[in-house]
Amino acid sequence: MAPAVLLLVACERSGIEAFNPYEFQVPAHFPPPTYNLENNPITHAGFDLGKKLFNDPILSRDGSVACSNCHAQAVAFADPQHRLSVGIDDRIGIRNAPPLANLAFLNAYFWDGGVTHLDFVPINAIESEFEMGEQLSSLVEKLNGHSRYPSLFRDAFGDHDTINAPLVLHALSQYMNLLISDNAKYDQYVRKEVSLSTEELAGLRLFEKNCTSCHSGALFTNQQYANNGLDTVFSDIGRALISEGLADNGKFRIPSLRNIALTAPYMHDGRFATLEEVLEHYNSGVKASVTLAAELQELGRQGIPLSKPEQARIIEFLHTLTDYAFITNELF
């Protein structure tokens, strides 16, 4: 009798409490967030402000480029069309714009991991001469002189004298922190809501055997840096730019694979157009170098032997990481 009463109480409680889409909730199978949300609690007004800023080309020097230009929801906030990011005056960047999801759980950002707090991520895009080409101080000036932004910032953050850069960055973080992708078919499988097909399960087994030393856990990355054998000579030294250590030459952040079927092209420089090319690279294209990942030379040769049917199964599994609810969520 007692358990039934408890259940009833629990049901009533959840029925009474309105669903709050702006509440940050850690998915059950995710690690704890790295972002300290007590420093910047997500509110309806703060999230909406961050979303407006994310989509507003006012962030760029000439009003031509918004964050959403290179981070489009339809493709999981990756660049919908360019191999390398394209900024103001059609300037070409040096790396592929990564998809954005589950950022609140990461410990570093960008392909080289040069930024270790989400708040500081947008500064790079805003001030890069290849991206938005704007000064943070000039952006703050534009927002303070804008007809609507000052009242939107007061709605989001209460009383303050003027808009400052940290408030702009906090608003953007509120928006980005809620970009949680946890409802792909794979997640539903983990929650025992659906089953995977025979092919997908076969792909999962192959993936677990060959890929999870790097693409591990619910985020599908161990958040480390690796040289996956793209080159023997590095035109972009990657992680070594930040660590200044030769041992990091040619290493890049191991990316999450969530929504990977939507986020072509692949690798830091977008050199592979399809997942088939990526899998074939691991099978036959891995090039030797001093810093090549140990996992890619375990068998006395470079790479991971994967037959074409095995590659196809893995790709079928990777499609189960596509989160259609995420890319169509009207909140974003």
Partner: peptide, 24 residues
């Protein structure tokens, strides 16, 4: 100080002229 994220006053990256974006 860095793991607190974006902060104002002396730490405001738009005004202090002392922030590295690339190696934040």
């Amino acid at each position: 100080g860095i793991k607190e994220g974006a902060a104002g006053g002396a730490l405001d990256p738009a005004t202090n002229g002392m922030f590295w974006n690339w190696n934040a």
